[in-house]
């Protein structure tokens, strides 16, 4: 039985002088497999854009509805911690980018080093986040039954000028700070969850990189994980100004 439409006149298989062991049977060339992988990863990142997109829309809506509450609640977040964390995450992304380069130029030692640095900075980020969350817990700013709005209705006084450090909110508006903190925890929590998943994957990739799997010409996992890691960076790049920097010039 004839199983083909038109037989190919010459098979091109011989043209590949060395094909990677990771080349899967249904791809004809490494190039094709690699581009398919990158494309698939980007499609996955589209789903991430839409996933966070829903949250960003919720933020946009409530920030416009309850602007005073969002301003007051946002000023509870620590700018130094947020800025340092942004720098940490950018550094982590930077080392990830260098890791991709190291894999491409087949430097195994450098690749492992850069992956470890990426992991280290990722963990540092989560560490700082832990202290930020802890402070919210102590101040009863976690949404739920124990949420406390007193600080927004009666802001503490500035010790030198004896004026409130923040515009006092009406109790009704002060309640809306809970919406801000709900979004704050969901957005940063989802971001942190993506970081944790990323760090787990990093551990696995580092172990494999240490065995030399990615420095023999097969770099797709490093490259595609890099895309994921940079995407998580981008989410934070938007979260930082939107959550921490709403209005930092009180009294004007």
């Amino acid at each position: 039985m004839d199983n083909t439409i038109v037989a190919t006149h010459d098979t091109h298989a011989e043209e590949h002088h060395h094909s990677l062991p990771q080349l899967r049977h249904h791809f004809e060339t490494e190039q094709q497999q690699r581009e398919a992988g990158t494309f698939g990863m980007w499609l996955f990142l589209l789903t991430e854009i839409m996933f966070f997109g829903g949250l960003f829309f919720a933020y946009l809506l409530y920030r416009n509805w309850y602007n005073p509450a969002f301003v007051a609640a946002s000023n509870q977040l620590s700018i130094p911690m947020g800025t340092v964390n942004t720098a940490i995450l950018i550094s982590s992304g930077f080392f990830m980018a260098l890791g991709v380069w190291a894999a491409e130029v087949r430097k195994q030692g450098l690749l492992v080093l850069f992956l470890l640095l990426t992991t280290l900075f990722g963990c540092l980020f989560l560490g700082v986040k832990y202290f930020e969350y802890k402070e919210k817990w102590e101040k009863h700013h976690i949404p739920g039954a124990n949420f406390d709005i007193s600080e927004f209705v009666n802001p503490p006084l500035n010790p030198t000028t004896h004026k409130p450090i923040e515009e006092p909110l009406s109790p009704d508006m002060a309640k809306k700070t809970q919406v801000f903190f709900s979004l704050y925890f969901v957005m940063t929590g989802m971001h942190a969850l993506h970081m944790i998943i990323g760090i787990v994957l990093l551990g696995w990739l580092t172990w494999r990189a240490n065995r030399g799997e990615f420095t023999e010409g097969y770099v797709a996992p490093i490259e595609n994980f890099g895309l994921y890691w940079h995407f998580v960076d981008i989410v934070w790049i938007f979260l930082f100004p939107l959550l921490y920097l709403i209005n930092r010039h009180p009294g004007t």
């Binding site: 829309f57 919720a58 809506l61 409530y62 509805w65 309850y66 949404p143 739920g144 039954a145 309640k175 809306k176 809970q178 919406v179 709900s182 979004l183 925890f185 969901v186």
Partner: peptide, 17 residues
Amino acid sequence: TLHIGVFDPALGGDPLL
């Protein structure tokens, strides 16, 4: 589970969202 307030009208959320 955690009683956050994104859709809860009692907390200022919008069910229509």
